[in-house]
């Protein structure tokens, strides 16, 4: 019989398992902190409820109301909020309050931190989307599509859009000098983008052309357009910038932001705050 080889030390848990532990800790912290919940989770829902109630009327040549037109765009803005703003501010806070430092002092594989953050953002984003869809269906009579092809479109737009915004948010977290400034640093570009992407200002086809051009450089405009193609009938197309849903272009722009965001993350991510050199 061969001798049994005993490993001297028990093994450290895998990055995947630790990532799951991180995700539960992140989610608990997120939902217990009222600021974070209000700013990233509740704000899009409140805006949808408010603007949806204020806007009135039906677009000519279709049976789509202003509120119904707003709803899919707000889902895109909600995804951007729970990924871009959520990750940007929470990572800036982690850098500022000693979270990253403590984690770097523990035997944690760096990937476990990112797995935790991304799972947290994913859960919050799915929750946000369900809330926004619920408001749209209950309050504004948005009808959910029955065609599986439309849900397939929803799936890939959601996945690409959320990934692009999440990676951009992780990269942007390094821009904030402190946790306190992170809210402003992340919210300003978000609000500006929401306007020039035709989320708050509807329909997007009515925006001045220079603003549309700038908005088209960023992922939010394309994610919103993708979600409108899922929930709205083609009779609304005359209100778009071009009378087509442009699925190919949506996929292209969002994928480009995923790749660019990943490159930015890998090149700019700082574990240490500004004083830790």
């Amino acid at each position: 019989m061969s001798a049994t080889v005993l490993r001297g030390a028990p093994r450290r848990p895998s990055a995947a398992r630790l990532g799951l532990h991180r995700a539960t800790i992140e989610l608990k912290s997120f939902f217990r902190e009222r600021d974070a919940v209000v700013f990233t989770f509740a704000m899009p829902a409140v805006i949808l409820a408010l603007l949806g109630s204020i806007f009135d009327g039906v677009y000519p040549g279709s049976d789509v109301t202003s509120a119904q037109y707003l709803a899919p765009s707000m889902i895109a803005a909600g995804v951007a909020s729970t990924t871009f703003i959520n990750l940007g501010t929470s990572i800036a806070a982690d850098r500022d309050d000693g979270t990253l430092r403590r984690l770097r002092g523990a035997p944690m594989p760096p990937s476990a931190y990112f797995i935790g953050k991304i799972l947290m953002a994913l859960v919050v984003t799915v929750g946000e989307t369900v809330v926004l869809l619920g408001i749209a269906v209950v309050a504004f009579d948005l009808s959910l599509p029955t065609d599986p092809a439309r849900w397939l479109t929803f799936g890939w737009v959601f996945l690409l859009g959320a990934t692009a915004c999440a990676l951009t948010g992780i990269a942007a977290s390094s821009l904030a000098r402190s946790a306190r400034s992170a809210g402003a640093v992340m919210n300003l570009p978000y609000l500006v983008l929401a306007f020039i992407s035709g989320v708050f200002y509807t329909p997007v086809g009515q925006l001045p052309e220079p603003l549309v051009t700038i908005g088209s450089l960023f992922p939010l405009k394309w994610m919103a357009q993708g979600f409108r193609s899922v929930f709205l009938p083609d009779s609304i197309l005359p209100q778009e910038v071009v009378p087509s849903w442009e699925h190919g272009r949506i996929a292209l722009v969002l994928a480009a932001w995923c790749i660019g965001g990943m490159v930015l993350c890998l090149t700019t991510f700082r574990w240490r705050g500004r004083r830790g050199r």
Partner: peptide, 16 residues
């Protein structure tokens, strides 16, 4: 890392 313990001066994390 697993054999080192660290107590730093100013942790403001884990609050929730």
């Amino acid at each position: 890392r697993a054999q080192i313990g660290i107590v730093t001066q100013d942790g403001g994390d884990l609050l929730e």
